[in-house]
Design a protein around this nucleic acid. Structure first.
Lengths: 365, 365
DNA sequence: TGGTGAACTTCTAACGTTAGAAAGAATCCA
DNA sequence: TGGATTCTTTCTAACGTTAGAAGTTCACCA
């Protein structure tokens, strides 16, 4: 293994340094050595220590010196080597955002916001789209010990509360969306119960009486879907509507396909209904397609409402009524919580609630 | 800064290490110090050098020793500290995937594939969604010198070919989608010209004669849109149709909104057309909405076709005819190219073409 | 002109890992 | 038992950064 390494690595350097190689017979093998603090120092004509002081904003550096050093830094394009810095300081300024998938519009948007928020604080975000691979989701709880990260924002999906509570890893962690009771981990989410009741009230105010709930996750304990289903039932009570267990449809996953399949099951069951509450808009998209194929008109025959307010909800035909969480606030708050824990500061609230708005669109007019 | 660190870090550690703290009066302040190679060595009763040899698979380690060391590693949950390793070896096993945005279905999917492919080879992927921030896109070309990365897969959007050619940074880079001529950089993409001609032929075979092209990027030199427009024009020639410059609509960005706005401009221009070729499906979604609002039926009045085959293309109403690139192959090939360059091996093809299929759906029936 | 700081340099050490060299210990075979 | 061979340890150095300590230079002011 070693001779291979020794034989190949230089090739890279030589190749990419082609333009720098002088053919004048003397300085042939000038390889573009990474500029370090010493190169900066010698160009600026100061000691490396002064450069370090400038870079780290330490006292006792005169403006003139600082200028000189900054100029040298700019000229050489010097950036402190993260590995060296990490090794010295023990922090990598990197956090992980663990989500089920990046492809879903909701998580994609969330990731985008977390990344920009983190960046403005000097942090880099590593995205772990763990999908349905239990190994990968397990690694989230183990804290990526081989990856040099400072904290984790974890949007759990299929993990058991026990696994979270049994977590050994000391890496600071914040839960997003999913709440794991008694885990002691900070948690950021919208109020699932209240938003579910609002959706039900909205439908009731439109004269709907037979409401279906699509997107339960019966296998998953304490899931977001569970909280929403609870709120759904409470909402029915509040509006003096009856709850029918036959109108609750579970799914394996939140995807368009699963939504379509669940809608077909619902139709085939023969139990009458006049509206569908989907635990996520991505399910609604599939439901719409199923209805369209069966000739069921939305919203004339059936209303559809959901959560997440994904772009498709706005642009689809019909457009979808949805609970629109303030994703930017969600990202900001979870990052804030995480940084608080990472700094060892005291959290003001372990539970944090994020605002949302109900966007009424064509699908429930 | 330092006293703060010293005063706060332990708080975190103590908090999460509660269960480890013995209250027997003697060993009170056991902090879960990160296990290093030395801890493993002393537990296994060998020298740290032997541990290193085991970890790095070097010769001259007897099976018995190896077992002992591996057991100690397992017991302590030791993972080599990446920072130390990086510093020593100069490689971070991390690559950057630079894309305009993660939220778009196409790039989201692509990112997902690149991440899993890279992971199977032991690499971590850092996603840089540079958006419309020129600073961030610029950083791509500068090679993230502060981040210790080994390579870059760059899906360029708004960068000038000059900027790419002027690139100084030696970090291995592969271009994805966008081709920059004469940059010498390896390039992976579908055949934009041929796929465009196929779309045109498809529409012509359906009796369409007045084809609009939506999604040109006139400000960007050598863009994917440009190549597709070229193919579009050649396709018109092949099918003996006339090209009308008034039916070419530019956009600032590939988004649903921009698609909608461009479609409205097209309608307002009054120039007749019976089909729209969109440079990206995400534009088609906006076009559909514009048409719907104006009462234009798809495909009865106008056909719509495009590229990328995003999920919305399949699930929308109507579903969209689209060129479906083999995204998995795209990800795999670009990674393969990048690793080849990183290893200093010779590339077989600097240009690499990826397969695609034309999916005919409702929007062009 | 001497004194006093501030500004700057030099020196040392450390973070965790890896690699070569050299020296020491164990094992094997004759 | 001797010598050769394989295994293991010890020693040294390096990657790039940061921080303290101690020493040097310089400018300013009394």
């Amino acid at each position: 293994m070693e001779p291979v390494e020794a034989g190949q690595k230089p090739l890279v350097l030589e190749e990419s340094a082609d333009h720098d190689v002088r053919m004048d017979g003397i300085a042939t093998s000038i390889r573009p050595k990474r500029v370090g603090i010493k190169e900066v120092a010698s160009l600026a004509g100061v000691s490396w220590k002064t450069v370090s002081n400038v870079v780290n904003d330490r006292p006792h550096v005169r403006p003139a010196m600082r200028e000189k050093v900054l100029a040298a830094i700019a000229e050489l394009g010097y950036r402190p080597n993260l590995a060296g810095r990490q090794l010295r300081q023990g922090s990598s300024m990197t956090i992980v955002l663990a989500i089920p998938e990046i492809t879903s519009p909701y998580f994609g948007k969330l990731a985008e916001h977390v990344i920009t928020s983190a960046e403005s604080r000097g942090y880099t975000v590593l995205i772990e789209a763990y999908g349905e691979d239990p190994t990968r989701e397990g690694r989230v709880l183990e804290g990526y010990q081989n990856r040099l990260i400072d904290g984790i924002i974890y949007s759990a999906q299929n993990v058991s509360p026990e696994a979270v509570k049994a977590r050994q890893d000391p890496t600071p962690m914040v839960l997003l969306g999913e709440r794991i009771l008694d885990s002691g981990l900070p948690h950021v989410a919208i109020n699932n119960n209240r938003s579910a009741r609002e959706l039900v009230s909205h439908l009731a105010s439109r004269g709907r009486t037979r409401l279906a709930f699509l997107g339960d996750r019966p296998d998953v304990g304490e899931s977001v879907a569970g909280l929403r289903l609870e709120g759904f039932q409470e909402g029915l009570l509040e509006n003096e509507l009856t709850f029918d267990q036959h109108l609750v449809m579970g799914v394996q996953r939140y995807s368009r396909d699963e939504g379509e399949m669940a809608a077909l099951r619902l139709l085939n069951s023969g139990v009458p209904f006049d509206s569908v509450v989907c635990a996520s808009d991505i399910l609604s998209v599939g439901v719409l397609r199923a209805f369209r194929r069966r000739g069921i008109r939305v919203p004339q025959d059936v209303s559809i409402v959901g959560w997440d307010d994904i772009p498709e909800a706005e642009f689809g035909a019909p457009s979808l009524t949805s609970i629109s969480p303030d994703i930017a606030a969600l990202a900001e708050a979870s990052l804030e919580q995480l940084l608080t824990v990472m700094d060892g500061r005291k959290l003001e609230n372990v539970e944090m609630e994020i605002g949302y708005t109900l966007k009424v669109r064509e699908s429930s007019f």
